[in-house]
């Protein structure tokens, strides 16, 4: 069984074949199937353990950064979500239209304290009982007054 030399040339040049030539090629391929059987008999040597370990390492190194990245994204994402939720909670809350009574009471008492302090200060300045910069009751405590002779003579 011989292949037509003209067909051989066409095969080498990868030219298209006529119907009859194509049929002839099919027959030749069927006749040469034994080559394929022989080739399938060739053994493939197993990849080494080192090869497999190397592949595992490469795959793991490829996968690890993704996991770390995912974890970082998870943490930061959670933090961001909490921050956004808190912002929404505080800023989206409607502004109070009236002052709470407890807050008013505390505000009144604070004002009262300030007013009393001011009055005492004015009184101290006008009577000379103190310079007004320090509490009257503590200004003389712990200090010994130095009497002058004029003071003693006045008595």
């Amino acid at each position: 069984m011989k292949l037509n030399p003209e067909i051989t040339k066409k095969l080498v040049q990868e030219e298209s074949l006529q119907m009859a030539e194509s049929h002839e090629l099919d027959q030749m391929l069927s006749a040469s199937d034994g080559v394929g059987v022989t080739l399938r008999g060739l053994e493939d040597s197993e990849p080494s353990m080192a090869w497999r370990s190397g592949l595992n390492e490469r795959l793991l190194s490829m996968h690890a950064p993704k996991r770390v990245k995912a974890r970082v994204w998870g943490v930061t994402g959670f933090g961001t979500a909490v921050a956004v939720a808190a912002s929404v909670f505080f800023f989206a809350k409607p502004a109070p239209t009236s002052m709470p009574s407890s807050s008013l009471a505390s505000r009144a008492s604070a004002e009262q304290i300030m007013l009393d302090a001011h009055r005492m200060n004015v009184f101290a300045l006008s009577t000379g009982a103190g310079d007004g910069s320090e509490p009257l009751e503590t200004s003389s405590e712990g200090t010994t007054h130095q009497w002058t002779e004029a003071d003693l003579g006045a008595f």
Binding site: M1, L3, P5, M28
Partner: peptide, 8 residues
Amino acid sequence: NEDSIDVS
């Protein structure tokens, strides 16, 4: 070698 090829 453009002779006919025998693969059978």
